[in-house]
């Protein structure tokens, strides 16, 4: 009786272990496949990203933008940046604020913004 029980348990556990190993094997193959697919899609996304970046750069080339600005001038009124576009701090109307107050206000807003 005991012998059958023992053999039964052993056969049962071997079978279970085999099943478990098979499942792990199967899962790991599937995972490997998925990784490959993901990497492939990352690669193609990267490629697309590169192409789109290049296209974006190509569309934003300065001579094209210049032509577009001229073409749509009547609607957009875009002109090249000019030294006249800079005004000094004191030229701005600050309403009820005094100059030192307004300076503090602007400084507060500008913290964190860096200029190249």
């Amino acid at each position: 009786m005991l012998r059958f029980l023992l053999i039964g348990i052993l056969i049962g556990s071997t079978f279970a272990l085999g099943l478990w190993a098979y499942k792990i094997n199967y899962d790991s193959r599937a995972a490997d496949q998925r990784v490959k697919e993901l990497e492939k899609s990352i690669l193609s996304a990267n490629k697309q990203f590169k192409i789109l970046n290049a296209e974006w750069a190509h569309l934003n080339r300065p001579d094209r933008l210049r032509k577009l600005a001229e073409y749509y001038f009547s609607e957009l009124r875009l002109t090249p940046i000019n030294p006249d576009d800079f005004i000094s701090f004191s030229d701005v109307y600050w309403g009820q604020f005094s100059e030192s107050e307004s300076k503090a206000l602007v400084d507060k807003r500008l913290t964190g913004i860096t200029h190249e």
Binding site: K47, K50, I51, N53, A54, A57, N60
Partner: peptide, 9 residues
């Protein structure tokens, strides 16, 4: 960071 040269496929 404006691209001046890139590789395309």
């Amino acid at each position: 960071g404006n691209i001046l040269a890139t590789n395309l496929e």
